[in-house]
């Protein structure tokens, strides 16, 4: 505790960097993955290929990814952009499958009714398909959020400061308290993201008390535990 009291400003700074280093990839991943998932669901033949591609991207070890990215996109070695780009790719990789499932979960009868009553294709996509895919999209996004928050910490290994820096530094200086604060900070942040998403879901989708065909792929907590164990590094 005394360590924390002496370093509040530093922890706060690291928390803020962690926040945007994870928030940005979550947001970008969602925005990029949803249209791809919609497309994959629309074109049944390409669906398998697109989803496997996502699966393959996700198996790239994150540390290796952070290291080779600068030479691919021409950024500096310590540039936080590397972390944001890599994590966005992972977010897209997970989210595309959820998005395809989400659009598949929308009742064909409702879509047919929408068309028959005079929705044009674009109007139908935005006013009917997207909101009705919402519950399953949200389930997928929650997984992406927790996994991204924990993955950011790997960035500390290549010198991009975030709460993970407390692990590397605490390990080097044999400071258990510092490591513990790091863990608490990351878990707290993950729970915060999850809470925000759940509340946003309640507000945006008051009609969906429980997702009807909710096929949440993995529970967020399970996937979070897996990442904390370092399964990905």
């Amino acid at each position: 505790m005394s360590w924390f009291n002496a370093n509040t400003d530093k922890v706060w700074d690291l928390l803020l960097s962690h926040l945007w280093l994870s928030g940005l990839p979550i947001l970008l991943g969602f925005v990029i993955a949803v249209p791809i998932g919609w497309f994959a669901n629309r074109h049944r033949r390409l669906r398998g290929t697109i989803l496997s591609l996502g699966g393959i991207l996700y198996t790239i070890p994150s540390l290796a990814f952070f290291l080779v990215l600068p030479s691919i996109i021409g950024t500096g070695f310590l540039d936080p952009v590397n972390v944001v780009v890599a994590l966005t790719v992972y977010a897209v990789a997970i989210m595309v499958r959820s998005a395809a499932d989400a659009f598949e979960s929308v009742s064909p009868a409702v879509l047919d009714a929408a068309t028959a009553t005079g929705f044009a294709p674009t109007g139908r996509a935005f006013l009917v398909e997207l909101p009705l895919a919402g519950p399953v999209l949200l389930a997928g996004l929650r997984v992406v959020a927790v996994s991204t928050v924990s993955l950011v910490s790997v960035g500390a290994l290549i010198g991009v400061s975030n709460l993970g820096s407390l692990f590397t530094e605490g390990y080097r200086t044999d400071n258990d308290a510092e490591i513990l604060i790091g863990v608490i900070g990351i878990v707290g942040l993950a729970l915060l993201f999850d809470l925000v998403l759940v509340i946003a879901g309640r507000l945006l989708m008051p009609w969906a008390r429980t997702p009807r065909q909710g096929r949440s792929p993995v529970s967020p907590i399970m996937s979070f535990a897996q990442h904390l164990r370092g399964g990905r590094v």
Binding site: S107, A113, A116, T117, G118, V128, L132, W207
Partner: peptide, 21 residues
């Protein structure tokens, strides 16, 4: 097609209402 459908009422079994509206 779209104009035509908007000019014709359509009622189906199970109502086909939008569940989120």
């Amino acid at each position: 097609k779209v104009e035509l459908r908007r000019s014709i009422g359509y009622v189906m079994q199970e109502a086909g209402l939008l569940p989120h509206r």
